[in-house]
Write a protein that binds this DNA or RNA. Structure first.
Lengths: 198, 198
DNA sequence: TAGTTAATCATAACACTGTTATGTCAGTCA
DNA sequence: TGACTGACATAACAGTGTTATGATTAACTA
């Protein structure tokens, strides 16, 4: 019953990792999975359904990469560790990452379930980001800071995917991102520092 | 001679602004331009050629948006003005922006001419970014800072395009980006400040 | 047990995509 | 005049996602 489903999903995931979205045609998936094209439609909601699964798969990777809350290092280093994990996942699962941010297949828009996964990951990011903020910080402000960090990190990843990346010296993008983020996080910390009581 | 060329290009640009990449099929362009599909291939290098023109068009918009060097305001404000222009262009020409950053049509990769335009724009960004750095700063360091700013701004724009944008309060994304960038630029300035002579 | 119902699968087709082979026609140049 | 080059049109090819049609199988029900 769910045997064919897993076979299809495995075939899709493999093709996706190998050749990205361009290698992910319905016929290619069904061929590798050893089923007919109609199988994609009886077990999933067509190609949209397949992409949804991969979208969720990608966010799960990101989610687990940020799983570093239970260390007792300085908060600054904890966050940088989370960013490092994010960058690693983005590099290792580039096709998934591109899909998540619309660089994979124009015309795909995530379903409700896929969006729920994205929301879950963002909440985790908010939790991590909150570590550098005073406890009584409002939720909106916490989200603002989390968005700030996310935008910065994602900006590096996305620029790296851009064709212009060849123009820039082949230095490690990840270390560039990490040092820039370190600077910015320090700026956030000092800005939100509890003022000394008079 | 170049009459048909302009007609085709105009039709393509209109379709692109109206419906993005999904509305930009070779047949749709030729139909609106009143020519045969083969016209796209005799006047351009197929769809790739059309996308190249739009890619360059997009970078030209970005380029001119950063055209604020000749003001004599504080450098910090000059840069923020450039960023404001960048954000405005990104919002107004979303389809172009998505195309530039691979969110438009997977499988498209810019030609040499298109990349040259991108390089030109990046150099301008480096020039602007250099305003907050000491004059004797090395080129590599200037590029590093420019990349930093670009990544941050682009990160906001790209996240705004992401489906998760609905999760976040509908506050103006641009003002969020501007305030975050202001914080970061201040951090850069203080970090690169010429140390007081002992 | 017999009959109905639902899900799975295969074949083939439809409408769409970018691209191109073929052929026509007009203009240019030697 | 004759040869050639470029623009144009028609139609086709190979690919895409999707679905209508029909066959087979499994499960549940009367």
């Amino acid at each position: 019953m769910s045997d064919a489903r897993n076979t299809i999903l495995k075939a899709a995931s493999e093709l996706f990792l190998e050749g990205g979205t361009s290698a992910l045609s319905v016929r290619a998936i069904s061929k590798r999975a050893g089923v007919s094209t109609i199988g994609i439609y009886s077990h999933f909601k067509g190609k949209q359904g397949i992409l949804d699964e991969l979208y969720i798969e990608g966010f799960e990777k990101v989610f687990s990469a940020m799983d570093i809350l239970d260390t007792n290092a300085p908060v600054r280093d904890v966050i940088l560790l989370g960013i490092k994990g994010y960058l690693a996942v983005a590099g290792q699962y580039e096709a998934h990452y591109r899909l998540i941010f619309g660089e994979g297949d124009a015309g795909y828009s995530p379903s409700k379930e896929a969006l729920a996964m994205a929301e879950k990951a963002f909440k985790k990011l908010v939790d991590i980001s909150s570590l550098i903020l005073p406890e009584d910080t409002k939720v909106a402000e916490k989200q603002r800071i989390a968005l700030e960090i996310w935008a910065f990190v994602h900006g590096y990843v996305s620029l790296k995917h851009h064709a212009i990346s060849t123009l820039i010296s082949p230095v490690e993008w990840n270390s560039l991102a990490l040092s820039a983020l370190a600077t910015h996080i320090d700026a956030i910390i000092t800005k939100h520092a509890v003022p000394m009581p008079k």
